[in-house]
Design a binder for these strands. Structure first.
Lengths: 342, 342
DNA sequence: TGGGATAATGTAAACGGTTTCAGTGTTTTC
DNA sequence: GAAAACACTGAAACCGTTTACATTATCCCA
């Protein structure tokens, strides 16, 4: 039996009664799922407005088995990167009349052994980077939940569409720029977490650039950065204070926020950017052109990534064809933190 | 009758059947809402795992009349400001085992004549600034939807708790700083939209500071800025190109992003910051210390705002007492864009 | 040993919608 | 003018849970 005396909210039955028709007719009128005669329509409309009726989302979901919601799984929220991403996503979600459910999710520390968003929740899922394990992805895939991966490729076998940006070539060229234009030879590489694919490809680009220019790869110069300002700061400071550390003349920070942390640490130990050490970022945040010095970085169309990923997700939901891999172009933005003067 | 042959997803009935018990027992076991004997519990647990059963959220919501979700209504997403805000919110929402629904909502242009998030959707609502009209607020309030207002005060009469930051005094002191320390006399004030309360109070602070220092208020110096970089840029550029415009020596931009736009425009017309014109921001974005020149601004604890608002919302949902107004302190951060040299 | 309390479970009625199917009139069509 | 098509509408099943109430078995104690 029901619990509360009554939820006090007006239901479709109230509307039906007051309009003198059946609930079926009201439902049809609201959803325009069948014609309703003029006079009846008007009566319903009137009652609808008078009662300020709003359909109960859950009831509707239960009946239609459509959630009218899509989920976004993030591994963190605290990065300038997510502003543009979210913007692109929300825009399209709204346009399609869906709701957006946002959750952070870090596989390593999760009480429940399953993610907060799934088929019972949402009609489709946007999965950012490593917010879900391969196994979890496989599970959701088996349940036929439409998904799109962002900044991460599909696990072997299950062919989940993904959209990401070109990392390797851009990094290669930027590193080469540091070497060739500025004669840098000891270039620190800040990496993300092990599972971070962006980080992986950038590292490949970095290594290949070193090799192509006759520089040796030095594990000592690989520092954790996590694409976060604070982590990068600490990491850099720690490195700089090592008693017998190698001299460095450049840092690839992997992210513009991280670049700020790095510059902070550098400054504090009396090193000048870019005279003593070049610093370059990634992502081209909206303020990077106004940093001191203006940050040389790589522009990634994050807003576009969000838009396209969402579009692909909706295509999937509506059974339209979807590109299995979308790789958006990146572009090197030369400013002054690398040592260029223009 | 039902539509699809079957949703293929496993329901509580499947679990019940396979465990040889009734659905009621399974439900009780899952929700720990009543004791279940040891052997039965074990059988259920086993089936649960084997079938990977996940309760259908909508069904549960319908039955319990709890949505286990809270909504966040924003008027825009494209501002660095929302990163920290969202972070504070999401953190607490997750902790409480709720979901977060995010929607943008601009009353002026909305197809439906009602907001996307409401009692049928969420158990509570975080309403940012002017994303809802007074009338809409009143409507939701009448339906007893728990709400907390962020950066906005409650409309007359309905006493909806709000959390915001101190605007007036901080602005007053910062403007006074420009006047007294740097001898500025023609200070542009960039305002937000008319309904923006932050903007309102800052303007009061601005006017009072002028008056307290014998400067006359000049409507010509009120420029639209909208707390957005691009708007601010255009606005400033437009002003600077007016044929017979007044000389200016300072700009209060209302937002750090906007400050970037202003500096951009200033630079382009050959004005130096801070030598020719002081520029000050608001909010103290994470990167403002590293701009060129480092931005003098006002620190607002945005992350805290998000946290506290959410906490208050949950208190309301659980019928705990809630402060009706929370005003968080702000702090002037003197850097160099005002003309200070340290 | 009988009877009331207690514990564990089952039955079935909600929750608020959608949709199938059937049933009315009203038109067409031949 | 009867049959067939059409346009609306209503009754009721169903979506997958929760939970009030009923039922049964077990226990405790006078």
């Amino acid at each position: 039996m029901a619990r509360k005396p009554n939820t006090s909210s007006i239901t479709i039955r109230d509307v039906a009664r007051q309009a003198g028709v059946s609930v079926a007719t009201v439902s049809r009128y609201i959803n325009e799922t069948a014609r309703v005669s003029e006079p009846v329509g008007e009566r319903i409309e009137e009652v609808l407005n008078r009662l300020q009726y709003r359909p109960h989302a859950a009831a509707r979901q239960l009946a239609t088995q459509k959630m009218l919601a899509i989920g976004l799984l993030l591994n963190s929220i605290y990065n300038d990167f997510f502003g543009p991403l979210l913007y692109g996503i929300e825009e399209l979600v709204q346009q399609n009349g869906y709701n957006l459910l946002v959750a952070t999710s870090r596989p390593e520390r999760r009480k429940e052994n399953y993610p907060a968003l799934g088929p019972h929740n949402v009609d489709g899922l946007l999965v950012f980077a490593d917010s879900l394990t391969d196994k979890e992805l496989a599970g959701l895939h088996a349940q036929k939940l439409p998904m799109v991966l962002i900044h991460r490729s599909s696990p072997e076998g299950l062919d989940i569409p993904c959209v990401t940006v070109e990392n390797k070539a851009a990094t290669f060229h930027l590193i080469e720029h540091l070497i060739k234009q500025h004669g840098r030879k000891s270039i620190v590489f800040m990496r993300g977490k092990v599972d971070q694919e962006d980080s992986y490809w950038r590292e490949i680009g970095y290594r290949e650039a070193l090799e192509a220019n006759g520089l040796e790869f030095d594990p000592e110069l690989m520092l954790p950065g996590d694409f976060q300002r604070d982590v990068a700061y600490l990491s850099m400071r720690d490195f700089l204070s090592r008693p017998k550390r190698r001299q460095i003349d450049a840092v690839f920070t992997g992210d513009d926020s991280a670049a700020i942390g790095v510059m902070e640490a550098l400054e504090q130990s009396g090193l000048r950017v870019p005279q003593d050490v070049s610093v370059v970022g990634f992502n081209d945040s909206r303020h990077s052109a106004f940093l001191n010095p203006p940050l040389t970085t790589i522009n990634a169309p994050t807003h576009e990534v969000g838009r396209i990923a969402t579009k692909n997700l909706f295509n999937q939901i509506t059974n339209h064809p979807v590109d299995s891999v979308t790789l958006l172009p990146t572009e090197i933005i030369i400013r002054q933190s690398c040592g260029c003067t223009s």
